[in-house]
Design a protein around this nucleic acid. Sequence first.
DNA 1: GTAATTTGCACAATCGATTGTGCAAATAGG
DNA 2: CCTATTTGCACAATCGATTGTGCAAATTAC
Lengths: 358, 358
Amino acid sequence: MEPPVITIKELAKLLDLSPTTVSRVLSGNAKKYRISESTEKLVKKTAKQYQYEPNQIARNLRLKETNTIGLVIPDISNLFFANLARIIEIELRKRGKLILLSDTHDSSDLENETLMFLFGRKVDGILIAPVGLTSEHLRRFTHVPMVMIDRYFTKLPIPYVSTNNFEGAYVATQYLINKNHSKIACIQGLVNTISNKERVRGFQKAIDDNGISSEDIRICGTDFSIENGYNTTKKLLKQASSLTAIFTLGNQIAIGAMRAIKENGLKIPEDISIISFDDQAYFDLTCPPLTTIRQPIDLIGTEAVSVLFDLMDGKQAESKILPAKLIERSSVKDFNPPSRSASADEKNGLIPRSSIPK
Amino acid sequence: MEPPVITIKELAKLLDLSPTTVSRVLSGNAKKYRISESTEKLVKKTAKQYQYEPNQIARNLRLKETNTIGLVIPDISNLFFANLARIIEIELRKRGKLILLSDTHDSSDLENETLMFLFGRKVDGILIAPVGLTSEHLRRFTHVPMVMIDRYFTKLPIPYVSTNNFEGAYVATQYLINKNHSKIACIQGLVNTISNKERVRGFQKAIDDNGISSEDIRICGTDFSIENGYNTTKKLLKQASSLTAIFTLGNQIAIGAMRAIKENGLKIPEDISIISFDDQAYFDLTCPPLTTIRQPIDLIGTEAVSVLFDLMDGKQAESKILPAKLIERSSVKDFNPPSRSASADEKNGLIPRSSIPK
DNA sequence: GTAATTTGCACAATCGATTGTGCAAATAGG
DNA sequence: CCTATTTGCACAATCGATTGTGCAAATTAC
């Protein structure tokens, strides 16, 4: 019974050579170290025959390079991050790197634990959508190249790649306003993340620029989950009966919101309009197809990897903010306020707001 | 400027002790090796002060344990696998393991390459939804504990955890038949995967058990992608105009199919019914809400991890087939064949098949 | 006061690779 | 034939941890 795995020493012994020579041949340095061609061929042949594969752990220790990148995200079951993970995996594989995946569940503690793990494992670099990164945390990790994706902190000396959340949210809100909405609720995601804050800021700016009273609008919600979308919408529907539109700041929030609206027997967009940040593949099939702000997920992924490699190569690395795009479908209806005549409403196919069950 | 990372040797030198002693204290073996309490406290304090973290690579090499599990899946952007990855990540974290993630894109070559990578990195175990695993491939990997998820090969001596695909598909098909469908198309996923084959077998068995002619049905499609769902449905709608129902064998196929149906101006379920394997969170919001066979994703994940750990502990490990569940929504309509009177159709609100654009 | 025991820690090997350097043997040069 | 050069490879250190064993010094026993 032969050993399931052969080491370079054993291979060397079989060949009656030193591990040095074997290593040099197999790492393509035969010429450089003047190994004879006959020896080179023999080593290669025997290595193949015994299916020798170098122990990466040993190589890593010696070479101080693990060919591993840590990917730290808040929720791999959120399609935004799942899609991002996919494109990142593709880009990293091209460059011979493997992913150490960690899902922080938006917990600062888990994130910190994870970073310690990754750090101990000597990852070559880290791609992270941070929850609670602080400069405190980071003092220890400054020597490992790191790029923030989606979320970021401008105070930290770490480059980031993200969507233009502010502009995207502004465009979405302006779109609602152009459709004559003014009583708008914004259901936000995790409050302290910059992607959320920027979206809220974009929303608020559009509201202000159009002279809409802050009493007409609502900003609520706690995180990017379906549950938050659902619960917050339920509350909104109970409390703010004059609401005509909802802007959800994430794809999962949108699902929750739509579910709540549906459960309450309301129709989108007749009774209430909805627009969401973060487009996903199935949003053209929902009832109704959802108008969204699409993030350039693939570009975020490729750029993030590219920036990370710049960093790892010791090059200057610049942060990037990529444009979002409005995808117009049919979840927002041109809204005429109830103060107009009922006949006008009916011409537009609108069900009067008063017919909504409480 | 202090070094960004301190090694055990440096720490030992600072303490005027040997690395041996430091190692023993920090790994909790102070008592066992009769380290004095005063030394123990001093070591711990200084380690904390200098934020010493052992180099895992070095530990791994020495201990032959990496606390890393390889997760090999065909497509992380497929919500089925994304959800699976999430639950697996949670389970593994509980047990102190990290995930090395690999997306094979259903390519046998990538899968093989990946396995070599993981093998070289000395992962403690592998969870894999295989594409083309053969006993040939596996001969080299037999010594690393491995569990197949979702897909499997009964011929291989490797335990697996999966859904009861046969039964699930049988139930789905029987459901269609109970609703008086007989002209049914089955859009399959990756043809050679067992999950696909079992679903097709369940479909076929239900067809046969109900005495439906094999001329009435169609089995087509190539993989689990949205594109396949879309393209195959487009073809079906062109060729098989008598079709009354489609059974899609995956959540992404369902998206593609619905998109194609919508594009062709047909209505679900009035013009054509659809049922899909693999439920997802948004299927209650599609137009119409989709009737599906739900897989117990969380259970698959927890069981797979549990089986893997049994294997790693040298225990007997048993494969598991977990039950699927029909989630009835409204994408399947009771179908009365066109041979009945048109008035009957209209009573049921059915649009006559002939009105479908070609 | 001497022998036996216990206490407290260090030495050195090891995991499996890589690499600077050194040293024979073979070949070339004159 | 003797020296100079080239060829072909091995020695040993190294990466940073862990661990069996050994050995002084301190303590206890008698």
